Computed example of a mutant assay.
Amino acid sequence: MEWQAVIDNPLLQDLPFKIELNKWGKILMSPASNNHGRLQYLIGSRLERGKGGGTVIMECSVQTTDGVKVADVAWASDVFIAEHGFQTPYKVAPEICVEITSPSNSKAEMEEKVQLYLAKGAKEVWVCDDRGQTRYYAPIGEMERSREVLDGF
């Protein structure tokens, strides 16, 4: 299945799941909780304040070598948006991609997503647990804090 077919399919609209595609075009679904939505909002708001420009995107689709992955939150600079607009899915990852873990996510799955977003050009990938504890990754490896958001997170 192609990503546009997922977006256009009326049967897949308004599902209480995050939908992604694997590299074979099969649909993967993860249940989303209200806390998950709350964390998306908090992280997006913090990115908006901390970056002082650019665009925050919720449910940001990125074409990776393992299919379409959907970052829970992403931040894209004005330069990124000028170059890529809002193409769906992005062929290049925005500068910051954030994944919020769900109970169904394994550590290996999250580590793989970090590497997939970094391989597609993300400067940082954040992984946030259900308590709001966040780990930060860059191409050089795990970092103590974000280097992209000056007021910390």
Rank of each mutant, 00 (worst) to 15 (best):
W3T: 00
G25V: 09
V98R: 10
P89F: 07
K26E: 15
L116C: 01
M58C: 03
E109Q: 15
S77M: 11
D14T: 00
Q13V: 00
E48G: 13
Y137M: 05
F17L: 06
V98N: 12
I57M: 07
L28C: 09
I96K: 07
L15G: 07
K51W: 07
I19H: 10
N35V: 07
E111D: 12
V56D: 10
D129F: 07
L21N: 11
Q87A: 13
Y136E: 02
E142P: 07
D8Q: 09
E112I: 00
G85Q: 05
F86R: 12
D66F: 10
P10A: 03
C128I: 04
K91E: 15
C128D: 01
R135E: 12
S77W: 11
E83P: 01
G67Y: 06
S77L: 10
G85L: 04
E48S: 15
L12H: 09
I81D: 04
K51R: 15
E109W: 02
G25F: 07
K69V: 08
S33G: 08
V73R: 10
N9H: 00
N34P: 02
G44C: 10
N22G: 05
E59S: 14
F86H: 10
W126I: 08
V98D: 13
G37R: 12
P10L: 05
Y117E: 13
Q4N: 04
G132T: 01
V62W: 09
G37L: 06
V6H: 02
A32N: 10
F80A: 04
Q63L: 15
T65E: 14
D78E: 15
E112M: 04
E2K: 14
Y41H: 14
V6G: 01
M110G: 06
G53M: 12
L21A: 12
L118T: 07
I7A: 09
T64R: 05
D129Y: 06
R46H: 13
E20I: 03
Y136N: 01
P31G: 13
A71P: 05
T55Y: 09
P94T: 09
K113I: 00
G141F: 10
L28K: 15
M110A: 04
E112F: 00
P139K: 06
L11D: 09
K18F: 03
M110R: 09
G25C: 11
L11H: 07
V127Q: 02
S77F: 10
E2T: 10
Q13H: 11
I140W: 00
E144Q: 11
S30M: 12
W24E: 15
Y136G: 01
S104T: 12
A74G: 08
E112T: 09
M143L: 15
W24R: 14
I100H: 04
D130P: 00
G132I: 01
V62L: 11
I19W: 03
V68L: 08
N34S: 13
E20A: 03
W75S: 09
Y41R: 14
S104H: 01
Q133M: 01
K107Q: 06
H36Q: 06
G67N: 08
T65V: 08
T88V: 03
R147S: 04
G37T: 02
N34G: 12
L118G: 10
V125C: 06
G50M: 12
A82L: 11
G53I: 13
G67P: 08
D8M: 02
G141T: 06
Q40G: 13
E109A: 14
W75I: 05
H36R: 12
C97A: 15
I140C: 03
K69S: 11
Y136P: 01
L116D: 01
K23R: 15
D72P: 05
K69C: 10
M58K: 11
V125Y: 03
Q40C: 14
